[in-house]
Design a protein around this nucleic acid. Structure first.
Lengths: 115, 115
DNA sequence: GTCATGCTTAGCCATTTGCCTAAGTATTGC
DNA sequence: GCAATACTTAGGCAAATGGCTAAGCATGAC
């Protein structure tokens, strides 16, 4: 059990912004240049670059510069820790339900055996 | 397609903090009072209450006050939009791979039919 | 009633976030 | 070379975040 996973902090934080999620939604459909990514957004380029930087720092995207053009692509593996954390919580929750079921079953049996 | 889902903003934001994730990790195991939740944390009570408030605002937990004790419980359904967004992105990514496969297959056929 | 308990409210403070404009750098096209 | 293109860097600014202390307000125990 990780007591405090900074990678998860960065991942969830990166996903918490609508602009960054929109960028990812675009990039899962295929790589794009910074200019192409910026197109749909009513935002100054440096602001958008800031978002790309955060996505890259979190590991959610990678980018390479060819000449004067930077091309970005999503890194699907980066979503795994997020998915894993969510799955873990669901497993714990369901485990709790199972124990509750077992407990209720025990109560029922005791009642059936009772006076 | 939601152009900008504020609920997702709040959910991911809520999950981006290690203290709040730790609180959720505790609560998926069962309900707890504010005092019980605060126990393990080296943090002043008002700070921790702030985190609980954010979790509740995001819809990830619910709380009720009985007498002077407030009891909190996780709301598993609240995770659904997060999971859905992740699933959607994976589906889009996989769709892209499928189209890439199809494209490669087309190329291969063309080459086979070629001069 | 009085006091301890368990939150709650109010207010302050440092840092981070998200956005901007302006100016700079590196390629590419003519 | 010279200009246009595509980012990039630098710096500023308002608002949000995450933490604190101090004081307040119900409730439960005695």
């Amino acid at each position: 059990m990780a007591k405090h996973d900074p990678a998860l902090d960065a991942l969830f934080q990166a996903l918490a912004d609508p602009t960054r999620r929109a960028l990812l939604e675009r990039l899962v459909r295929g790589p794009a240049t910074v200019g192409e990514l910026a197109g749909p957004f009513a935002m100054a380029l440096p602001s958008l670059m800031g978002h790309l930087k955060k996505l890259e720092t979190a590991g959610l995207i990678e980018s390479r510069k060819d000449g004067r053009v930077r091309t970005c692509a999503v890194v699907p593996a980066a979503f795994v820790p997020v998915q894993t954390w969510l799955d873990d919580q669901r497993a714990l929750w369901e485990g709790r339900l199972d124990r509750l079921d077992a407990y209720v079953a025990t109560l029922m049996e005791e009642r059936a055996d009772g006076p």
